[in-house]
Nucleic acid binder design. Sequence first.
DNA 1: ATGGTTGCACAGCAA
Length: 250
Amino acid sequence: MIIATWNVNSIRARLPRVTDWLAKVRPDVLCMQETKVTDEEFPREEIEALGYRLETYGQPTYNGVAIASLHEMEEVARGLPEDDDDSQRRVIEATVKGVRIVNVYVPNGQAPGTEAYEMKLQWLATLCAALEEFYYPSDDLVLLGDMNIAPEDRDVHDPEALRGKIHVSEPERAALRSLIDALRQKNQDDGVYTWWDYRMAMFRRGLGYRIDLILVTPPLSERLLGVTVDRDERAQEKPSDHAPVIATFA
DNA sequence: ATGGTTGCACAGCAA
């Protein structure tokens, strides 16, 4: 079973890239973030034409998440427990082939010391509390998406310059430690990144961050065969600033 | 320290 995550940075701007990629890779499940579109305006047909079912949770302009799946999606849930209609749309969940899939777009958080940063930590605390309340470590669960957190120093290009800054601060990192970082079960390399800022030619210069993560419970970790980052996708014409991350399970 | 780029939507914000 192949489960992928990709911050597409607008599904409408990225539609040709996403449909090409789905046709080529054929993951069982693709979790998307930053779709930046309402559910009504989501370009469903082009994705459904490839054989994918689709569940969306979007809003105009900002945020938005979606799951495309080749298989039936059960118990689809949207948002965090405390969310209302005005909340930013950042979470969608579904069960596919017995695996609970929690697709998240974690708030960016701007910089430590800002209001946005405090809201990020609060959002993460609410997410973690909900996961603890509704799931057991013995469940087959994957929490994946744009975490906007680099788990370790080796996940950023310049850990000294970035020390304590957004994406790497200790309170952010602490929020992820109850689950297993799938990529690190299989790959100890430095320089494995998933996001490169559009500005300052960061991709060409190889200066990135690994902030798109696939986190799993112990039983799913046992089934993990491998995790890859599709760096080539970042080198395409009109790319997202994030690359897809792909996990394969037995 | 600031700036650089992209997307949405048509000014300026978010990332």
